[in-house]
Write a protein that binds this DNA or RNA. Sequence first.
DNA 1: GATTTACGTAAAATATGTTTGACATTGAAA
DNA 2: TTTCAATGTCAAACATATTTTACGTAAATC
Lengths: 74, 74
Amino acid sequence: MAVRKGKVINNIRRIRLARTALTQVELAAMVGATRQTIIAIEGGKYAPSMELAFRIARAFGEPFEDVFEFDPDG
Amino acid sequence: MAVRKGKVINNIRRIRLARTALTQVELAAMVGATRQTIIAIEGGKYAPSMELAFRIARAFGEPFEDVFEFDPDG
DNA sequence: GATTTACGTAAAATATGTTTGACATTGAAA
DNA sequence: TTTCAATGTCAAACATATTTTACGTAAATC
């Protein structure tokens, strides 16, 4: 039984709308990514790179682990 | 002037040796990665994926942001 | 001095994340 | 009812992360 890899969950959409009221385009610009990337990450298509993840948390002014959570059983 | 991307710094080597006294092979096995990956990440060749980063922090029993830090000006 | 353990380098192949560009849908506003 | 902003889908190209395999070195130990 190989090591469990888990899943990273993000609260980007919730925070973007509830706390900051940014559009995807605005957020993308703030963090130096494209709209497609924001869409894909919000939609759970894949997890962002570490660099992008930190930039997003900073753009929100939220602690990293409030934006990104780890589900070890995912 | 494009958005600054910053750099992710990790304290894996320090924690691995000082706190847990694990070898690279042992750590790799614990987190489901290869020795090469641990070497590359410790050596700053690249940042790990989010999933791997969370697994490493958990393997150490350390808070995520104690293991991985963001340098916005890197 | 041969063997073993831990760490390092390097390169090719594969997997995952990011960009670019084009087009579709929905709701709000003119 | 048309226009526009925001969101979504899709696919190809590109960049980065990870694995696999092989070989090199230094220190400890037999």
